[in-house]
């Protein structure tokens, strides 16, 4: 599916992923985790890659195999700089107004595989959840 870079589309993206996961009979707790990971990843695209700029393209695709659910999210915004990412210290997040990398931390904890790629102005995050 394709949506424009607005937070109001998060719900439809979540529902898109959940629908595929349910059709593949993934257990509900694994679906909960995929739903949150996808929401965090799309929020990061909208808020960081596109820096809140509306009307930009976010592509989300889901593939379900016998043992896994794979999600790919692509954008054409600013690349995620992994060198600036540090695992968040939760107590510090309470003092600071910035997002603090919590979304990335949650994605990494919830999904079994997470890969980022940036090339030729296109960014991609691929996330895999194995069937429990």
């Amino acid at each position: 599916m394709e949506v424009s870079s607005s937070l109001r589309h998060l719900r439809s993206v979540r529902e898109f992923v959940v629908q595929h996961a349910r059709q593949a009979h993934f257990p509900e707790d694994a679906i909960d985790e995929c739903r949150l990971a996808v929401c965090e990843a799309c929020t990061n695209v909208i808020e960081h890659a596109y820096q809140g700029q509306p009307g930009r393209l976010v592509k989300v695709s889901v593939a379900v195999g016998p043992d896994r659910l794979s999600v790919r999210i692509t954008d054409n915004g600013k690349a995620f700089d992994r060198s600036t990412y540090f695992e968040p210290e939760i107590r510090r997040l309470a003092r600071e107004r910035r997002s603090g990398g919590l979304g990335v931390h949650i994605i990494r904890r919830l999904m079994d595989r997470v890969e980022y790629r940036s090339r030729d102005g296109k960014n991609e995050i691929r996330m895999v959840k194995y069937r429990p």
Binding site: R14, L36, S99, L102
Partner: peptide, 9 residues
Amino acid sequence: GFISSAGMR
């Protein structure tokens, strides 16, 4: 039904 890191923060 759902809370993301933004709500948790």
